[in-house]
């Protein structure tokens, strides 16, 4: 294995030469982050894959409701150089469509289904992207969007238990025999039935 800092430099020149980077950030000697345009993602992933980044570690989204944008995050990894690369790209939030990366990384199939389920992003090119995966029979807006209120949904859908306001024991005598029995039993459990 070569020096990891030089690996980062190599990838930096590779990416800077081929793509117009909006932002590039070296997080540490094992992680680099690039922000690209939406259209460059597929080409960038192909280039990275042919440069040893064989594994797609993760694919997810970040919701930015104030910018009306959804940020796609792709994390690829190189097993030979111990290097993770994050690729970010922003897409429109109201009509979120991102072409599938299935031809490049076949393992993205279920990540894309998950992203569709939780963020509502459409992935044309993935034949199954709109099938249900984790949420079965979901009936609201995608739950990981920032404008989804889980508490309101939970209050609407699931029966709550009303907590009692007053926790004081009203009649203390009625509890005593039960308490004694319980203590006896606890003692019994502790000693394994022996006196």
């Amino acid at each position: 294995m070569t020096n990891s800092m030089s690996n980062v430099g190599r990838i930096n020149t590779l990416m800077g030469k081929n793509f117009s980077l909006i932002d590039a950030k070296i997080i540490d000697q094992y992680q680099v982050s690039y922000v690209l345009k939406k259209d460059d993602i597929h080409r960038a992933l192909s280039v990275l894959k042919s440069n040893g980044f064989r594994q797609l570690s993760y694919l997810s989204c970040v919701d930015w409701p104030n910018d009306h944008e959804i940020e796609m995050v792709y994390i690829v990894m190189n097993w030979d150089e111990a290097l993770h690369i994050q690729l970010h790209a922003r897409i429109d939030r109201d009509n979120p469509v991102m072409d599938s990366i299935l031809p490049i990384y076949p393992g993205a199939k279920y990540y894309e289904r998950e992203a569709h389920e939780f963020f509502g992003v459409a992935f044309p090119g993935n034949p199954d992207y709109d099938k249900q995966l984790i949420l079965e029979g979901w009936d609201d807006i995608p739950p990981m969007r920032k404008d989804f209120d889980p508490r309101a949904y939970s209050d609407k859908k699931f029966t709550k238990r009303d907590p009692k306001e007053n926790f004081e024991v009203t009649d203390k005598t009625s509890k005593r025999p039960r308490q004694e029995r319980r203590e006896e039993r606890a003692n019994n459990l502790r000693t394994g039935g022996k006196k």
């Binding site: 739950p143 889980p150 508490r151 699931f158």
Partner: peptide, 12 residues
């Protein structure tokens, strides 16, 4: 108790 995916009362 406020999760969208977790039920609150089993006895329901």
């Amino acid at each position: 108790h406020d999760s969208h995916a977790v039920i609150n009362r089993l006895d329901q």
